[in-house]
């Protein structure tokens, strides 16, 4: 497990030097929120309508921004043959997968946390600290499921010429079981529900996360084999 952290630390160090992924994901996500907030226009004052539409907007913004990042996640490894070097290390393939999941999760979650205040301002929400914490928990669970399967598919599409096109086509249908409870739980929080009101969605998210992570971990070896 410690070697997964070494891989994640290496990825994060490289990313924070260039901030290529982080910047592009953040700008994309912010642009989506700005465009939707403009298109909502007069609705923004109507909290009932906003509460129905805004959770979807938030997850659309994060999902597509996340795909930008995922399509790059193994590019760093494929440059200079580094993926081969990682595969040569005396660790099982699951360790490599876990390391990549940890770094992707940290980058995407950071992007979400930075974007969230803009969402709150643009969509005119007033959330108390408790609701914000719950929202962060939903984001973490939803993002983990997204990253767990996205990292696997990113590795799977690495050798293909149409990687950027293929990744969303493969990823979006698989992600639906995560996105639906994530959007519903977000809507619940924005509507003022407590943890009891969204407990079934949280359980679903946790279950999907576990299944996606375990299955992806097991099949990752085949995704990166020659």
């Amino acid at each position: 497990m410690i070697r997964s952290f070494y891989i994640a630390a290496k990825d994060l160090k490289a990313e924070f030097r260039t901030k290529q992924m982080l910047n592009s994901m953040f700008i994309f996500s912010l642009m989506v929120l700005v465009v939707f907030s403009i298109s909502f226009g007069d609705f923004l004052g109507d909290s009932a309508k906003v509460a129905k539409l805004a959770p979807g907007v938030l997850w659309v913004s994060f999902t597509f921004a996340g795909m930008l990042g995922l399509s790059r996640t193994f590019v760093l490894e494929s440059e200079n043959g580094c993926l081969e070097a990682l595969k040569l290390c005396p660790v099982d393939r699951g360790t490599i997968y876990t390391g990549k999941v940890l770094s992707n999760l940290a980058i995407m979650f950071l992007m979400e946390i930075v974007t969230l205040p803009f969402f709150i301002v643009l969509f005119n929400y007033g959330l108390d600290p408790r609701a914000l914490l719950l929202l962060a928990l939903i984001l973490l669970l939803g993002t983990f499921g997204f990253i767990a399967v996205g990292t696997l598919l990113s590795a799977l599409t690495l050798g293909t010429r149409t990687r950027e096109l293929l990744l969303p086509v493969l990823l979006l249908p698989v992600l639906l079981p995560v996105l639906i409870p994530a959007v519903e739980a977000t809507a619940g929080i924005l509507a003022g529900n407590g943890i009891v009101g969204i407990s079934s969605e949280l359980r679903l998210l946790a279950a999907y996360d576990l299944v996606f992570f375990v299955v992806s971990n097991l099949v990752f070896e085949y995704a990166i084999s020659d």
Partner: peptide, 19 residues
């Protein structure tokens, strides 16, 4: 994994992280 521990590989690609 024990085999990999015994091996060092040098290729025409450097296997290094540029950043």
């Amino acid at each position: 994994e024990k085999v990999r521990n015994e091996i060092g590989m040098l290729s025409h690609e450097p296997y290094l992280y540029g950043e």
